[in-house]
Amino acid sequence: MLDALEVFTTVVVGLMVGVEFSVAFVINRILDALPGDSGQLGRAHGGRMLGAVMPVWYIGSLVLVGVWAVVERHQSGTGLVVTAGALLAVSVIMSILLLVPINNRGRTWTPDNRPADWEQQMGRWDRLHYVRVAVVVAAFTFLVAALV
């Protein structure tokens, strides 16, 4: 049972890391290269779609890591799991305080109502997202290390 929790948690977090990595280094680069308003419209749609899913994924991942840490608190490797949980908590706090407000604005924008500085706001979101990706990659790395 505990092995299943460890594997399930690691897979859930790993898939989340993959999605976030893809957004940072693939999807947004593709959207930025599209002509005209297509990229901005794509970002708005992505903000709506992922904005609905990612909070559940982030919180769910944090809860799973917390359960793992509590259930196996006397096992070797628990410090790695706790560190992963702390990093995931940082990513959640960072998301709520820094990224979500930008995303909530951007997902409503159209070519007719977007602000003049929309590109700068998306650039700031991208830079903050790179940091968040680094944090969740580190968390995932600690989880994998805890498995071995």
Score class of each variant (00 low, 15 high):
Met16Lys: 01
Leu99Glu: 05
Leu2Glu: 15
Val11Asn: 12
Pro35Val: 06
Gly77Met: 00
Arg43Lys: 13
Gly77Trp: 00
Gln121Ile: 07
Met122Asp: 07
Thr110His: 11
Arg43Gly: 14
Met94Asn: 12
Leu99Thr: 08
Ser91Leu: 06
Gly46Leu: 13
Glu6Pro: 02
Asp112Cys: 04
His74Tyr: 14
Glu6Arg: 12
Val70Phe: 12
Ala69Glu: 03
Leu87Ala: 07
Val17Leu: 04
His45Tyr: 12
Ala69Val: 04
Ser22Ala: 09
Gly51Glu: 05
Gly42Val: 10
Arg114Ile: 04
Asp117Ile: 08
Asp3Leu: 14
Met16Trp: 10
Ile27Asn: 02
Val19Phe: 12
Val56Ile: 12
Ser38Cys: 13
Ala86Gly: 13
Arg114Cys: 12
Val131Lys: 00
Val12Asn: 10
Ala134Leu: 05
Gly18Asn: 06
Asn113Ala: 05
His74Pro: 03
Val19Tyr: 02
Ile102Arg: 02
Val56Gly: 14
Gly39Trp: 07
Val67Ile: 13
Met16His: 04
His45Thr: 13
Leu147Asn: 09
Tyr130Pro: 04
Phe25Met: 08
Val133Asn: 00
Ala116Lys: 15
Trp125Cys: 05
Ser38Arg: 15
Pro111Thr: 05
Asn113Ile: 07
Val131Trp: 05
Leu128Gly: 04
Leu2Asn: 15
Val135Trp: 00
Val70Thr: 15
Gly18Cys: 03
Glu6Ser: 10
Thr9Arg: 11
Leu5Pro: 08
Glu72Gln: 13
